[in-house]
Simulated assay, not measured.
Amino acid sequence: METILTSTERVLKLAPEGFSALAGLIDNSIQEAMGWLVKEREGFIDPYEAHTRFRGRILQVETHINRRAAMASDKLTRLEELGVRIEGGPSLSIIAKVNGVQGDIRIMQRPRSVVNVQIIGHEGLFEPEYGPMYLFYTEHGGCLDSLTLVESYSNRNDFFLKGCEAVDQHEVPRTAMAAPTSTVKTDELSEFFRQVPGKFTETSKEVEWAAERDSLPREGTTDN
């Protein structure tokens, strides 16, 4: 019997190694940004500035350094080869475009409240389109702690005030649900990760605990 995948699981399955590589890129960017902030701010870290630096480092590496080098040799970046393209969005947003998925996936800091809800009326002859998707990250100990793909119809401007109502959510493991037929070996993704990565949670409960124990408050990082 064929396993029925949820909307976020289907998207993750389209580019499993790409999401793994993206997790590594975010992890590296957080470590570099937090290392600088701890040193320069002497213990006080503003969440708005932290997100700004995470975003800046991700865009610097992928859209400037990697893409410029790839274009010089008439190739795609390593991340693009794995099905994910990163772009800078309006305000402080980071946008991921995944091959086979219409629309943008915004990369944002995870709100404190992410509540699962059901939308009535999705049953019918036609498969429903994906709602707006977000890739929520949490930081802990100066490293990436969790990365969760969330489908939500909530107004993103209310995420850090009223919380986020998730129609569906699925955590991105570092193996990123690698397909059995994949020709890309997990070890080949090691270039995206530091030698001492942060703890990457494995269950939804642990994601919630990670959000609660995160030392950085979420308020003040909303994109417009």
Rank of each mutant, 00 (worst) to 15 (best):
E127I: 07
G124S: 10
Y137M: 04
P16D: 02
T175E: 15
T181H: 07
G83Y: 02
G43S: 08
A50V: 15
S113I: 14
T63K: 05
T148S: 15
V115N: 10
A179H: 04
A15Q: 00
E165Q: 14
E87I: 14
N66K: 15
A15E: 00
F44A: 10
P217F: 09
F192V: 04
K39T: 04
P197L: 13
L216G: 12
E9L: 01
T8L: 02
A21D: 03
G121F: 09
T148E: 11
S204H: 13
L59Y: 02
L5K: 13
I86D: 06
E127Y: 10
A176E: 04
I107E: 00
P111S: 13
G220F: 12
G103W: 00
R213D: 08
I94S: 00
E188P: 00
Y153L: 11
T3H: 04
T63M: 10
R194I: 14
P47Y: 12
H122R: 15
V114F: 13
D145G: 12
M34H: 07
E32I: 14
L161P: 02
T186I: 13
E40R: 08
N99R: 12
K205D: 14
N66T: 05
K185D: 07
F126T: 11
P217I: 07
A96T: 01
L76W: 11
R194L: 10
P47V: 06
L25A: 11
E129R: 14
E87G: 08
L149W: 03
R213G: 02
S93M: 13
T3L: 11
E206I: 13
S152Y: 03
S182E: 03
V172N: 09
R53Y: 13
E129W: 01
E129V: 08
L82E: 00
S215P: 03
I26M: 14
E127S: 06
T148Q: 14
A21R: 01
A96L: 02
P180W: 03
D214H: 05
V117P: 00
I58A: 01
F19G: 05
V61L: 09
P132I: 01
L189V: 02
F160A: 06
V150T: 07
I65F: 11
L216H: 12
G198C: 09
N28Q: 07
N155P: 02
L59M: 08
D104S: 05
G142T: 05
F54Q: 02
V150C: 06
R78I: 04
L144C: 15
H170W: 00
P197S: 10
L22R: 01
F193A: 08
R53L: 10
E165D: 10
Y153C: 03
G89H: 01
W209Y: 15
F159R: 02
I105Y: 01
I86R: 02
I105A: 00
F160V: 08
S93I: 03
A176N: 09
T181Y: 08
F19S: 08
N28R: 07
S215A: 12
R194V: 05
R106A: 01
A21Q: 01
Q195S: 15
E17S: 10
E165C: 06
A211T: 08
E129Q: 14
E9A: 04
L25V: 14
S204I: 13
N116Y: 03
A69V: 08
S7N: 04
G124M: 05
S146M: 09
Y153F: 13
I26K: 11
T221G: 03
E151N: 00
